[in-house]
Structure formats: C-alpha cells, structure tokens
Design a protein around this nucleic acid. Structure first.
Length: 158
DNA sequence: GCCAACGTTGGC
DNA sequence: GCCAACGTTGGC
C-alpha cells in the first residue's frame, strides 16, 4: 500500500466536487508532467491512499482523503481537440498521457492549511514542503501520512 | 547532447 | 500580478 499527495485547483475540481461525483469517483484528467505520469503508470496501485491537496487558492492545504480506484489508462482528453488538455503530439498509437480514477473517502476533520503543515517539524522532509516543488503527484511516507491524519483530529493551534 | 529561450506552477 | 523554480522545446 502506497501513500500519495495529489494537487488539484479547487476552482477546477475540488474535494467537494469529487465527493459529489457519482460513486464519489472521477477520472483524474489533465496531468501533463512526465514525472507525475510515471508515478501513475508505474507505481500507483488500485487501493493506494491519497491526500487531496488544494493548490492555487487563497488558503492552500489538504482537504480530504481519497483512494486510487483504477489502474492507469490512457487519458482521453489528450485526443480531444476541444479539451484544454488536448495534446497534438498524442495519438491512439502513441499514447502520451495516462490517468487513474480516484474515489473520495472522507473529508479530514478539519482543513489543514499549508502554513500549518510548514510549522510541523515532523514534516520537515515532506516533499510537498520542499522549495521549488511543483509536482502534482508525489509520494508520501506512511509516517507522514499518519501524522497528517492525526493532526487533522487535533484542534487548530493558534 | 548542450543550453538559451520560453512556458508553467503555485505561493505570496 | 509578481516572480522563483523548474520543465520543455528546438536550434545548433
């Protein structure tokens, strides 16, 4: 069982949107970064646990817990000229991008802002918090995951 | 295969 | 909107 953090811009697709989707499941479209793609293609397994992170928003942070609901398969938006994720260099015979389905499990007891995560010495080595990190999918260690779940159960400290 | 130019991400 | 950091592209 692996743990991952995935980033989404909430104005595009928030954790609440995922909760509201049929069966709380949705294809996770539009990943156009090779490192992130390779994680999905090579390392993600159905049933892996996901921390759902909101980026590019007023208060970035972790909103909820989801799981991988399928293995990787071709992202159909790469073939769709109408899609913002269209990739002219991709074709049915030359699949460039894959995706996995994700399923919302539950919201965290409270939203965990990035600023609060940064204050946790336990998380000092977390990939999310490293300078210049731009990956939209990144591995999370089990200790990091456990700590974050526990942190969400505590009231926010001022 | 180098690397400059350009594009994107994402916090602030 | 700014800008640092990083990724991608393409000429050579």
């Amino acid at each position: 069982m692996n743990y991952w953090l995935i980033k989404s811009e909430p104005h595009v697709f928030s954790f609440d949107d995922l909760l509201a989707a049929p069966d709380q499941t949705s294809p996770w479209e539009g990943i156009r970064n090779y490192q992130a793609r390779n994680f999905m293609r090579d390392s993600m397994k159905k049933g892996d646990t996901l921390l759902y992170y909101h980026s590019s928003t007023q208060v970035p942070g972790i909103a909820g817990i989801a799981e991988v609901a399928s293995k990787a398969y071709p992202d159909p938006t790469q073939f769709n000229e109408q899609s913002p994720y269209f990739d002219p260099k991709a074709s049915q015979h030359n699949v460039r991008w894959v995706l996995v389905d994700i399923k919302a499990l539950r919201k965290l007891e409270r939203y965990l802002p990035l600023a609060e995560l940064k204050k946790q010495s336990t998380l000092a080595d977390m990939r999310l918090l490293q300078k210049g990190n731009r990956l939209s999918i990144m591995p999370v260690t089990k200790p990091e995951y456990d700590f974050i779940v526990k942190l969400a159960k505590k009231p926010a400290s001022s």
